[in-house]
């Protein structure tokens, strides 16, 4: 177990959290503590959810350049949200408690992604690049359908959905946090409890059967966790295109270990540090107008291209 690395990362994480809570704190503590505290918790939840979903998805797809975002998972969530506004009417959705909305859209997300991505992943004659390209095109399709539906709904309801379509770390939907945080914790604990099975699943379908695992069941359970985690993070901050790729690639670079017992916590810590630290820098140090999500997309996109070109040279 890479104890030193984990200790260092935890320390860095703690320091950044303290900095986030204290830098520029002008108002009284009774205001700052709940206000910044909730935002901090939300950022950490998103960070852990995204990194865990990405690690899990890379394991079952047997590929280290894929993420749920690239394959269109969060675009699907936004489409489902838009679709429910279209079907039920935005006012109805807005009137529902945010938790109820989240439960409805989240469970639809789980069903649809199991059907759609499950059949993609379980088809063992599937060509890898065709699978990826399918995902990328599906993402475009979901986005087009979303903007299509956005135009069809009432202009009053439009504003409601538009908020959901962009990543926004400044303006988190913290009202869903009460359900998002425990759900993330549950999913992360489940992922942790199957860390050894995940190690085996990563070796591919046939070898994991040989080692006594049931890959179909493993893939489906993992996909279910991915769907839950993506729903959580998308509901909180909207789609985060390259965050997962960025932090998980960083984690693999810092600690090249094949074991999920190492990768999951390291990636989660790096992800939380990136989000909290990035938000701290953007918001209070550089005072940039550009949202953190855009900067993350830029850096993440570069990482993706570098990874592909590097992997080809070997």
């Amino acid at each position: 177990m890479p104890t030193k690395l984990l200790a260092g990362l935890s320390l860095a994480f703690a320091l950044i959290c303290v900095a986030y809570m204290t830098v520029d704190a002008k108002a009284g503590w009774d205001f700052i503590l709940p206000f910044r505290g909730t935002k901090l918790l939300a950022l950490v939840v998103v960070g852990v959810a995204v990194s865990t979903a990405t690690v899990l998805f890379q394991t079952i797809s047997g590929n280290q350049i894929l993420t749920p975002s690239i394959m269109g998972f969060d675009a699907l969530y936004v489409l489902i949200l838009t679709g429910s506004v279209y079907a039920l009417g935005g006012l109805v959705v807005a009137d529902l408690a945010p938790i109820k909305t989240f439960l409805i859209t989240g469970s639809m997300m789980v069903v649809v992604s199991l059907l759609l991505f499950g059949s993609l992943l379980l088809d063992n004659r599937q060509d890898l690049f065709r699978m990826i390209l399918t995902g990328v095109i599906l993402a475009t399709l979901f986005r087009s359908l979303t903007s299509f539906l956005q135009r069809i709904v009432d202009p009053n309801e439009f504003a409601f959905i538009q908020v959901a379509s962009y990543a926004r770390f400044n303006d988190l939907s913290i009202d869903t946090l009460a359900i998002a945080a425990p759900l993330t914790a549950l999913a992360v604990v489940s992922a942790w409890s199957m860390r050894f099975r995940l190690d085996v699943l990563m070796l591919g379908r046939n070898i994991s059967i040989g080692l006594g695992e049931n890959p179909h069941r493993g893939y489906l359970v993992t996909l279910l966790l991915v769907a839950v985690l993506v729903s959580v993070s998308t509901a909180l901050v909207g789609p985060v295109a390259f965050l997962g790729l960025l932090v998980v690639s960083l984690a693999r670079f810092v600690l090249p270990s094949p074991y999920h017992s190492h990768l999951l916590p390291v990636a989660a810590l790096i992800s939380a540090i990136t989000l909290v630290g990035g938000q701290l820098l953007m918001e209070r140090v550089f005072r940039l107008v550009t949202p953190l999500s855009v900067v993350i997309d830029l850096v993440g996109g570069l990482v993706f291209l570098t990874l592909i070109l590097k992997s080809l040279r070997r």
Binding site: L203, G204, G210, P256
Partner: peptide, 11 residues
Amino acid sequence: ILPQTTEVTPR
């Protein structure tokens, strides 16, 4: 079982 090595080499 040692399957045919068509799968990607794990890292």
